[in-house]
Simulated scan of single mutants.
Amino acid sequence: MQFLRTLFWVVVAVFLAILGRNNWSDVTLNLWGPFQADIKIPLLILITFLIGFLPTFLVLRGRIWALKRRIAVAQRPPETIVNPPAPGTTDDLTAA
């Protein structure tokens, strides 16, 4: 099963490499005002993918982290609280 998973990711990587090589041409982006940027198409696709993926990934990781903390607190054994005797009382059985 591990072999098939590895083979799948190798095929995907080779496909993306071939696709990137065949589309390695410049694209001019009109930024603001007179500013323009020339960027290769595969890099532009990668940047836009990361802009969409990273915020979602970070929110997901933050929620998982918070839930793990809540589970850890819930699974912690309760602390036993020992009440000290009230002042002026004795616990000595011989005093009675």
Rank of each mutant, 00 (worst) to 15 (best):
17 A>K: 02
63 R>C: 01
24 W>H: 12
18 I>R: 08
1 M>S: 15
29 L>A: 01
37 A>T: 01
91 D>M: 14
77 P>N: 10
29 L>K: 01
17 A>P: 00
67 L>G: 06
32 W>C: 06
72 A>D: 13
77 P>S: 13
49 F>C: 05
80 T>S: 14
78 P>L: 12
80 T>Q: 13
17 A>M: 11
11 V>Q: 07
13 A>C: 15
10 V>M: 15
48 T>Q: 09
35 F>S: 03
50 L>F: 12
79 E>C: 09
56 T>M: 11
63 R>E: 08
56 T>R: 09
34 P>F: 02
64 I>S: 04
10 V>D: 06
83 N>F: 07
5 R>T: 15
81 I>M: 10
93 L>E: 10
31 L>I: 08
76 R>T: 12
39 I>M: 03
68 K>E: 12
74 A>H: 07
25 S>R: 11
29 L>Q: 02
51 I>Y: 08
30 N>T: 01
34 P>W: 00
4 L>D: 14
30 N>W: 00
46 L>E: 08
52 G>I: 05
12 V>G: 06
16 L>H: 05
75 Q>D: 06
33 G>R: 04
26 D>Q: 13
31 L>R: 01
61 R>N: 10
13 A>W: 13
63 R>L: 08
93 L>N: 06
92 D>R: 04
8 F>V: 09
40 K>Q: 13
38 D>V: 02
38 D>A: 01
42 P>L: 05
33 G>A: 04
43 L>E: 09
60 L>N: 10
17 A>I: 04
58 L>I: 15
68 K>I: 11
16 L>Y: 10
66 A>R: 12
44 L>V: 00
95 A>Y: 10
49 F>V: 03
26 D>V: 06
34 P>H: 02
85 P>I: 00
